[in-house]
């Protein structure tokens, strides 16, 4: 079947012409439409952020309390009792620098995966590029990351650890974490529209993923070269190690980062086409 775009926006004088027709197969992505609705993405993530803390007494401090408390608990469990090594760094710093990108990734992923179903009232009432919804969800997670980063700088001052120029690469890794979450959520959010099993699966997936990622421990802890190689196929490993590298130094995650990029590209492009293909039935199925 020849792919047919659902809508061709052709300029006809001043008024755009939109064609309505059933689309078949793997339709064109129509990213231009998304660009025209960029303000909607902004407003939706702004809404998410605003609503999240609006009725909480502590408001946005929750974005700080959560990683901070987790760090304290992990310090007790993994450093004091289990005696996991943290290189030449104080364990809290080591742990927190891994927690930040992890929480960014996991909260972006879980929010975005539920986002379409959570916006069913919009899907069934108004037209806009559906990609705006998961996109806005992952963007909203970045704000929490910003807050937790402030705390991290506080910790660095407390432990008197200097920052290095590596930190200039931090935005790149933040972008990668968000993109990775977005890529995976393209599949999960669309599947969740048809099968609500996904929303039971995601928290569980994130839980397991946490333990197979270098947050409470460092990747170096895996000594067998074979396992080390396999370990790098966890796409978040490169990002977490990368964020650590930008903040507290250490080894630059070369191989695992390449694997992350390759994985992400595959999942992102596939996800965009899959999402686009499923988009047309969202309003009917959700």
């Amino acid at each position: 079947m020849v792919p047919q775009p659902k809508t061709l926006i052709a300029k006809n004088g001043t008024t755009p012409t939109v064609f309505l027709r059933p689309s078949h197969g793997w339709a064109a992505l129509n990213l231009r439409d998304l660009w025209q609705y960029r303000e909607l993405v902004y407003f939706l993530s702004w809404r998410d952020i605003k609503v999240r803390y609006k009725q909480a007494v502590l408001g946005a401090t929750w974005a700080i309390i959560q990683p901070l408390m987790m760090m304290v608990v992990f310090t007790f469990i993994f450093s004091r009792w289990a005696n996991l090594p943290s290189g030449n760094l104080p364990y809290p710093i080591f742990n927190y620098s891994g927690l930040m990108p992890w929480l960014l990734f996991s909260s972006a992923l879980s929010r975005a995966s539920m986002s379409l179903v959570g916006s069913s009232n919009l899907l069934t009432k108004v037209y806009f590029p559906r990609l705006a919804i998961p996109l806005a969800s992952v963007m909203a997670a970045v704000v929490d990351f910003g807050f937790s980063l402030l705390v991290f700088f506080g910790l660095m001052i407390y432990y008197q650890i200097p920052l290095t120029w590596n930190i200039l690469a931090l935005p790149v890794f933040v972008l990668l974490a968000v993109l990775l979450a977005f890529s995976i959520s393209l599949w999960l959010s669309a599947l969740n529209v048809m099968y609500r099993d996904v929303q039971h699966m995601v928290p569980f997936l994130i839980n397991i993923w946490f333990y197979i990622s270098p947050i409470a421990y460092g990747s170096e802890i895996i000594t067998s070269p074979t396992w080390q190689f396999i370990y790098q196929f966890n796409p978040i490993v490169g990002i977490i190690d990368g964020v650590r590298w930008t903040l507290v130094g250490g080894a630059f995650p070369g191989t695992s980062l390449l694997i992350t990029l390759a994985f992400m590209l595959l999942v992102l492009v596939g996800g965009l086409f899959y999402f686009r293909r499923m988009e047309k039935i969202f309003a009917d199925m959700v």
Partner: peptide, 22 residues
Amino acid sequence: KILSRVTEPTEGLGEIHGRVGS
């Protein structure tokens, strides 16, 4: 819903000249 592009038609064609507000 079809005219406002909330849902796609299963068959047939439509064309709309101008921005649609629903």
